[in-house]
């Protein structure tokens, strides 16, 4: 019984900290993109606009929930829940330090892939149930996009799996011991690039947000949603973004390991830093790059997006998996020597 209670508390704590992170992230997003585009960003609510996200949350909670009269009522209401639930469920297997994980299962990596691929249902059902042209177009684009980019993403993850010889996320991090040059980003650099671009595409973020595409299909799949249901979609998108950042850090950037491991002087100097801080610092870098992409690149055209996924990323990952298999056979130190 106490075991169940502990798990419940941990689940609630994870969810609440995720929501707080999302709130801070939206503020950071608007401020940072503001600076990148030589603007000030939000500066009216509270000192330097720090209370802006709170005002946004209050606004979304108080708004009227409108349901289009020709929509499918059950599916229209269940769609935002279907978008949010897998985004939260995936966090069960994400470790933030050695042993700090809710479910340390053997097939953790597969579980994460399965959960991230489920998020598309929320979008597709929302688009169909709204009974609106723009929403349906957004839903169809999204389903095609997510299926296309799941393949290179799975291949990129497969590369890490081959190198670590395990699907357990904690084991994968532990295999990367020994400083920044021992992490998998170096031998698997093409896979990291493919993974990261696919992750941006999977989370429907700019420059791959063709499912929303304000300039083409108004707001895509959530054009008919307002108030709290819209807030749920928003929350799901941002939680997924944070999730793919954590996975990128765990798979390619050594998780909670210090970058100075094994380097004589620096290792001593930074030995006081707790592992969790390294983890969060690396995650913050990847989260920043999301905003950086958004501020830098124009939106991809839909056919270019498909071409990139099928004709460039899939052959590239296939090639690199063969190269990696050869490297593993050669027992190339320091990454692949057992």
């Amino acid at each position: 019984m106490t075991q169940v209670l502990i798990y419940l508390i941990a689940i609630v704590a994870t969810t609440i900290s995720l929501i707080i992170t999302v709130i801070l992230y939206t503020y950071a997003e608007r401020k940072i993109i503001g600076f990148m585009q030589d603007r000030i960003g939000p500066n009216r609510v509270g000192p330097i606009g720090i209370l802006q996200p709170v005002a946004d949350v209050v606004k979304l909670l108080l708004k009227e929930v409108i349901r289009p009269s020709a929509s499918n009522i059950y599916l229209f209401i269940i769609a935002p829940v279907l978008a949010l639930a897998p985004a939260l469920a995936a966090w069960a297997v994400i470790p933030i330090n050695n042993g700090w994980v809710l479910a340390d299962i053997n097939v953790g990596l597969l579980y994460v892939l399965a959960m991230t691929s489920l998020g598309v249902y929320g979008i597709v059902i929302a688009g169909w149930a709204s009974n609106s042209k723009y929403a349906l177009l957004g839903a169809i684009r999204s389903s095609a996009q997510i299926i296309s980019y799941e393949i290179p993403m799975a291949f990129a993850v497969l590369g890490v799996l081959m190198a670590a010889q395990s699907m357990n996320l904690t084991t994968i991090v532990e295999k990367q011991h020994g400083g920044i040059l021992h992490w998998y980003w170096l031998p698997l650099l093409p896979l990291l690039v493919v993974y990261w671009v696919s992750a941006v595409a999977e989370t429907n973020r700019l420059p791959f947000d063709v499912a929303e595409g304000e300039s083409e299909i108004v707001a895509g799949f959530h054009v008919e949603y307002s108030g709290i249901p819209f807030a749920l979609f928003f929350l799901a998108e941002y939680i997924n973004m944070i999730l793919v950042c954590f996975i990128a850090v765990l798979l390619f950037a050594g998780g909670w390991l210090s970058p100075f491991e094994g380097i004589p002087v620096l290792n001593k100097v930074f030995s006081w830093v707790p592992n969790v801080v390294w983890m969060f610092a690396k995650v913050a870098f990847f989260m920043l790059s999301f905003l950086w992409f958004r501020a830098t690149f124009p939106r991809y055209r839909y056919d270019q997006l498909m071409r990139l996924g099928w004709k460039i990323f899939i052959p590239l990952t296939l090639l690199w998996i063969v190269v990696e298999a050869i490297l593993i056979q050669l027992q190339l130190p320091p990454w692949f020597s057992i």
């Binding site: 892939l113 691929s117 489920l118 598309v120 249902y121 597709v124 169909w128 389903s143 299926i147 799941e150």
Partner: peptide, 8 residues
């Protein structure tokens, strides 16, 4: 995650 998305 994949086949049923195509069905839908």
């Amino acid at each position: 995650g994949a086949v049923m998305v195509l069905f839908l």
